[in-house]
Design a protein around this nucleic acid. Structure first.
Ligand SMILES: [Mn+2]
Ligand SMILES: [Mn+2]
Ligand SMILES: [Mn+2]
Ligand SMILES: [Mn+2]
Lengths: 223, 223
DNA sequence: GCGTATTTTTAGACAGGACTAAAAATAGAA
DNA sequence: TTCTATTTTTAGTCCTGTCTAAAAATACGC
């Protein structure tokens, strides 16, 4: 229950993010890639977190979070996403700029600060990238109706509700093409040969590569 | 010019704060006291900062900031005070609660964040304790007309413009006695035997110990 | 100016976090 | 199944920042 270091929090967050969905365990190398560090550093830290009962770890078998560890990770994620909302909504940052700054702010230790910030932002449910913000108890909304744009059929109508990649260059690409959260679109064509997709948004039409389309998260609308 | 660690920034700030005014140099032990650390730690860090040309240091003679070091210190102080304004004005914290949180926020590295925050707060000149906020170039207003309350004469009228002590228990004492920045007061009596002072504020009258009075910073008004 | 008290520095240790290189375990192909 | 390629762990090193204990320098009373 004692405070965790910035580093420990970053590891927990990375483990959380890579063990979402069906994947129940993350390998040492995969984590090393995600965190831009070396496998040996991962082993060291995972051992430490395992001693603290925040991570389940079997040598050579990868790791996952314990319920305790998940709680800690979600606290950090809550702060990260709240700060992102603050930076975009209150300070006027672009959604492509806030992640790196929130990486620092997420480590500020003050429960009262987090709760006051939440209130100041009027209890936002989603961050600027469409990711749900855990409540103070660590409950996270499941986005059951969310699908990737490339999974739609021709003539489907949908609204953008998230992005699967926070990379600034991808977000700037979306900005340039005037795609943002809330943008409504219709699938005009699906091209088999490269799995690209043509969408219409109001008057505009646009081709998206499979790569791009797979990173845009949408919810189907009644057509 | 590379980034400084949290620890290095804290040392620079502490050196800045203890070498204000006539005092031109701070001793190793004094700094150790202020920072709740040991003299040997001070020596180590001061050597390092001296290598980086941020601190002037002669063995056994104490240390002070170089112009470079002062610039760095003022950047941290600027962030500290801006965050304090944010916490009080926007989030509704009490002035007794914000110092510890700002101790963390002051280390967030993003020039753009600092400038956007400044703008969002509408370019405040003073923090919640009446301390002037350095501008982006590190220029700091000198509060030439500021005196301690215990230096006033009987019948002097003055307005509270700052506190010389950020200790929460002192600030809470002021809260309880409804003394805040902007409070106007008149000196009713000075008591020689213990140097305490009796002040009037509107209908209210109040005795202040010398200790308390010396920590309240005021500006004389035309009586 | 001398000798003691105090301050400051040095030496050595330790904990956290990261890295390299080498060793061990596992996975996969033949 | 056996041999090799890949993954993972271990061993040893380094850097930062801190501490304790010992040594050195300074300050000061007489
Ligand atoms: Mn982080
Ligand atoms: Mn986000
Ligand atoms: Mn600080
Ligand atoms: Mn302040």
């Amino acid at each position: 229950m004692e405070d965790l270091s910035h580093s420990e929090e970053n590891y927990l967050k990375a483990i959380y993010n890579t063990t979402q969905g069906e994947i129940e365990t993350v390998s040492t190398n995969e984590l090393a890639d995600k965190m831009n560090t070396k496998a040996s550093s991962i082993t060291d830290m995972v051992k430490k977190l395992s001693d603290k009962k925040l991570v389940k770890y079997k040598k050579y078998k990868g790791c996952s979070l314990t319920p305790e560890g998940e709680k800690s990770a979600l606290k950090v994620i809550r702060k990260h996403r709240l700060w992102e909302v603050f930076l975009v909504d209150k300070l006027g940052f672009g959604w492509d700029e806030v992640h790196v700054i929130a990486e620092q702010l997420e480590h500020i230790r003050s429960v009262k600060l987090t709760e006051k910030l939440d209130e100041f932002l009027e209890f936002p449910k989603y961050d600027p990238h469409g990711d749900p913000i855990p409540d103070r108890d660590g409950n996270l909304e499941l986005r059951t109706k969310m699908v990737q744009l490339n999974e739609l059929e021709v003539a489907d109508v949908a609204v953008v509700i998230g992005v699967a990649d926070g990379n600034p260059s991808f977000l700037q690409y979306l900005d340039q093409n005037k795609i943002q959260l809330g943008t409504e679109l219709k699938v005009l064509d699906l091209f088999d040969f490269d799995e690209s997709v043509r969408i219409g948004m109001g008057e505009r039409e646009l081709n998206l590569s499979k790569t791009a389309a797979s990173k845009i998260c949408v919810e189907r609308l009644e057509k």
